[in-house]
């Protein structure tokens, strides 16, 4: 395995900019997820790394080699595709064998590595089946074995789980994570599913409109989003518009004061996650915003409550369902205080 370093990568199609100014260093053995809505440039970036798309500008290095203009078949990347892309006219073992033949691995060694790769994904007993005889999850496992058998320098996955049903998705996700950890694979994982990215990634790069919005650990991105897009894309967030009055004090445009931690003069918005908001009849703590429950939606493990504040804004709160009296008073029209800790407030300058 090898580290990957991407420097000021850019791709334009005619006048449309697909990716611009993408820079990222991926450590040996690290799993980085590219996350973003469709059309954000995440797949284009992955395909540039794999070599299917020629970058307009910038450099891609795998290990110490500049591969920016190297043809696909010389890059030694293991790619897994959304729709499996198994060779339909070859058996499972022939599929895995293909890459080993291309890499001119000796016949005896080839067989051993094919078996090891299939063992790894628990598909050995299906070695003489054809892809059409396998379920989606099994096909994707074979595709993973095929990509890893060549001992690639980078493991690239393009939305590998999006064609699988919910239960399988979880299962294959765990398998990919385990393989990646155990083998120390440098991995890039493209997905539009934030839960997937949060669960699997060491670091994630959130992309929007061809640009990286923020790079960091799942925790860093969720807890300390640096811009509104990241804050809103990853989970949900309540926003208050206004400005800083003095250190620790933010005044909304509806003249409501919110206690915060920090004093950045450029702050134009303050955000707080719905699950950090608690509801109580009596005001509690420095931030207790009075209002009336608009809707309370029962979602099983949580209750999604919308409160219309007396000052006019509306605030979402996610109350975990601990049963009994705790949730009974969360009915439409009830007067409540939405309370949150100043430390849970995130400041934005846009």
């Amino acid at each position: 395995m090898a580290k990957v370093s991407i420097e000021r990568l850019k791709k334009t199609f005619g006048s449309a900019v697909a990716v611009s100014d993408f820079s990222l260093d991926i450590a040996d053995g690290e799993l980085v997820a590219f996350l973003g809505p469709s059309g954000c440039g995440k797949t284009t970036t992955l395909r540039m790394i794999a070599g299917f798309i020629e970058p307009t500008a910038g450099t891609i290095r795998i290990g110490d080699d500049d591969v920016t203009h190297m043809p696909v078949h010389k890059r030694n990347t293991g790619m897994v595709f959304q729709r499996y892309a198994l060779f339909p006219h070859m058996t499972v073992s022939q599929n895995v064998m293909f890459g080993l033949e291309m890499h001119k691995v000796e016949a005896a060694e080839r067989d051993k590595r094919m078996r090891a790769a299939l063992d790894m994904v628990r598909m050995s007993q299906f070695h003489d089946r054809y892809p059409r005889q396998l379920s989606g999850g099994q096909q994707q496992r074979v595709a993973i074995a095929r990509a890893l058998a060549i001992q690639p320098r980078v493991f690239l996955l393009d939305e590998p789980l999006s064609n699988l049903d919910a239960k399988l998705r979880l299962e294959v996700r765990e398998e990919i994570r385990d393989l990646q950890r155990n083998l120390g694979l440098t991995t890039i994982f493209v997905t539009h599913d934030q839960e997937e990215a949060l669960a699997i990634a060491d670091r994630m790069a959130i992309m929007y409109d061809g640009k990286v919005q923020q790079i960091g650990s799942p925790e860093a991105l969720y807890e300390r989003p640096t811009n509104l897009f990241v804050a809103d894309f990853l989970g949900k967030m309540n926003f208050f518009e206004g400005s800083i009055m003095e250190a620790g004090k933010f005044r909304t445009k509806n003249q409501r004061d919110i206690a915060i931690v920090g004093a950045d003069r450029d702050t134009k918005k303050v955000g707080v996650r719905p699950e950090r908001v608690t509801l109580s009849a009596e005001p509690q703590g420095p931030n207790a915003l009075a209002g009336v429950i608009d809707t309370a939606i029962y979602l099983g493990s949580i209750i999604d409550v919308r409160i219309r504040l007396d000052s006019g804004e509306s605030v979402s709160a996610q109350i975990s369902n601990r049963g009994g009296e705790h949730i009974q008073h969360l009915s439409d029209g009830a007067r409540m205080h939405a309370c949150f800790d100043p430390a849970d407030c995130v400041l934005f300058s846009e």
Partner: peptide, 18 residues
């Protein structure tokens, strides 16, 4: 699905072999 062609190339096959 021409991703099979890409798969072959990423596995080390040049255009003609794939």
């Amino acid at each position: 699905d021409f991703s099979v062609e890409e798969a072959a190339q990423s596995l080390g096959a040049n255009f003609f072999v794939s």
